[in-house]
Design a protein around this nucleic acid. Structure first.
Lengths: 108, 108
DNA sequence: TATATAGTTTGATGATGGTCAAACTATAAG
DNA sequence: CTTATAGTTTGACCATCATCAAACTATATA
């Protein structure tokens, strides 16, 4: 570990979230996750019917596995999603708290 | 002009807006504009009491004029703000439509 | 016209970012 | 134990970005 976790200013946290959504592929991944969570609820996604595993993104967006892995990690590090393992699959769901923060930011 | 305006997919428009907000300095500029518009109304900003001119950003963020100019252009091109000239000053205000689009995107 | 003010354009430079192929790890199933 | 599946890590490559200094344009004012 090269560097301790330094506390981020709240503006920088926002900027990091926007940065995570600024790549079209990453944005689409997030949109897919959002759709899924809206359809099935944000509560405990681990037990939700299939979908939102990494492989789905590969097929839907036609990008390689390393790229998906990289993008999902960025979304998670930005606080936009959470990832849970189940067997050898990883399932993603949106972080409602960040969703609320961002919605509030743009409220008129 | 190297290239005609190609219509952007709505996902790409969103990604472009997020990209514009992904730079901390640009985000702060946008926040200053938002604050100002929230305080004075989004309607016709040209006649609003001073503030939100480019020079203010230079001082508040401690960055050079070319950088401000560049950042403001990016925010405008992303559809986040509008710029109006008055004499030799330029005043910025937020685009309420984009604000609404983005708020809606994050609604739970 | 001359001078000051406010912002723009250009060009350069160092920093980040997106993607992939290859090699690797971990879990599951036979 | 072997094989298949699902994702990760590393390393590389090219593209895009943030910023600044220098030179420039446009507007206002004396």
């Amino acid at each position: 570990m090269a560097q301790k976790d330094i506390p981020e200013s709240s503006a920088d946290q926002l900027a990091a979230a926007f940065r995570a959504l600024s790549n079209p592929n990453r944005l689409r991944i997030y949109q897919v996750i959002l759709e899924h969570c809206r359809a099935h609820g944000h509560a405990d996604l681990a037990k939700v019917p299939a979908g939102c595993a990494f492989g789905d993104f590969m097929q839907r967006l036609n990008i390689g596995a390393p790229t998906v892995s990289h993008h999902v990690r960025e979304l998670a590090e930005a606080g936009l999603i959470r990832v849970e393992r189940e067997g050898r699959r990883r399932y993603c769901h949106a972080q409602p708290q960040m969703l609320a923060t961002l919605a509030h930011f743009f409220e008129l």
